[in-house]
Amino acid sequence: MSEDIITYLEKLVLVKFNENEKERIRVEINRIVDLFNVLKNVKELDIYEPLFHVHEISSPLRDDEVLDKLDEEYKMLKENAVLVQGYVKAPKTVVE
């Protein structure tokens, strides 16, 4: 596991390892990947489909529930929206 790969992974998951951690993780990841590699020896796996989920569900959705309450709220939003060049300006959500 080269330092380039560690740097690439840092970018993928948006974390940084300090110098001590980098050395430690390089050694540990190599050993852990050796563990992962034992799966290569299980030859019969190719006949099996991947099991993503034990219940084999696929995005179950609730039925839509039509409500008619939104009219007043929609009217209030529409009347109070701040428009900038045709776009609605949203309030800040990040408190400084």
């Binding site: 790969i5 998951v13 974390v15 951690e21 540990e28 990947v33």
Partner: peptide, 20 residues
């Protein structure tokens, strides 16, 4: 935020997760 907020084991596991 993620570097300060996550411990070493968590950072290691999510990095390995991204790897696989």
């Amino acid at each position: 935020v993620r570097t300060k907020g996550f411990g070493y084991e968590v950072k290691k596991r999510i990095a390995l997760g991204a790897y696989v």
